[in-house]
Amino acid sequence: MIDIPHAEHQIHCVTNFQDLVSTPFSGVINAICWTRKLPGDFSEIVNKVELNGNITAIGQEELCELQLSEQGQLARDILLNDLKLLTAHGASPILNVISYYHRDNTYPFFPTDVYSFHVDRSPIPIDTFLCTYHGESSEILPNSQGKKKVLIPAIRDELKKLYHGEDEGFESFLSENFFDLHYQAEPDARPISLGLGNLWRLAVDHPESQVPPCLHRAPKERSGQNRLLMIC
């Protein structure tokens, strides 16, 4: 089971896929978790996939062709079923083996890569689904424990130095460069690990959303250990 601090009410836990996709976000609830303790050896799948860069997508055909032990087959069956459930729901899940993500060093004072707490944005109603099966798991941050970076005076001043247009275009500049999606954790913040095997649905910033978008980030990978992540 996932360790959720008692004071955090933004997370709602369910016990099946149907409840995961049908339970509405409301009030401060912007993260829904199908808590699971999965059988099988997911590390075997990670170790047998032929890597082609820092992020390797695994197609269903390749997954089915892997020669696996009984425990590896159990893990594969779970992956195939999760892919099937999410696809039937209308999502487009991608299964990745991740060595590391690209680091953004364009502006050292303001990285915009996925290791920074951020929200997802969409022009249409949509949710983010993700599950870590092996390796370090993603984290979310209670909205009350994060502050939008573009509202922090020192950071905002630095961003204004990068911008050379009219004052009325500054907010558009922040949005077009994704600066306004990123958050800084408060000094006493307590990020929540999403755990292994749990399938999550996170609220996205879109025009029809009734709740704040969920703040989340990718973890720093453990040296020598690749992650197995499904996301859509």
Rank of each mutant, 00 (worst) to 15 (best):
M1K: 15
H6A: 15
H9P: 05
V14P: 00
N16S: 13
Q18V: 11
L20R: 01
V21G: 02
P24G: 10
F25W: 04
C33R: 01
W34K: 02
R36V: 05
R36W: 00
K37C: 12
F42K: 01
E44T: 05
I45H: 00
V49Y: 08
L51H: 14
N52R: 12
N54L: 13
G59S: 15
Q60W: 02
E62V: 02
E62Q: 11
E62G: 03
L63K: 02
L66H: 04
Q71Y: 07
G72I: 11
L74H: 14
R76Y: 02
N81W: 08
N81Q: 15
L83E: 04
S92G: 08
V97S: 03
H102T: 10
T106N: 08
Y107V: 14
P108A: 10
T112G: 09
T112W: 01
T112P: 03
I124W: 02
F129P: 01
F129T: 10
L130H: 00
T132W: 00
T132P: 09
S137Y: 06
P142E: 09
K147D: 10
I155C: 09
D157G: 03
E158F: 05
K161D: 15
K161V: 12
Y163D: 07
H164L: 06
G165T: 05
G165N: 06
S172G: 12
F173R: 04
L174P: 15
S175A: 15
N177T: 10
N177F: 06
A185N: 05
E186C: 11
D188F: 06
S193M: 12
S193I: 10
L194H: 01
L199N: 08
L199F: 05
R201H: 07
A203G: 14
H206P: 04
H206E: 14
P212Q: 15
P212C: 13
P213F: 01
E221V: 11
E221A: 11
S223I: 09
N226A: 06
C232W: 03
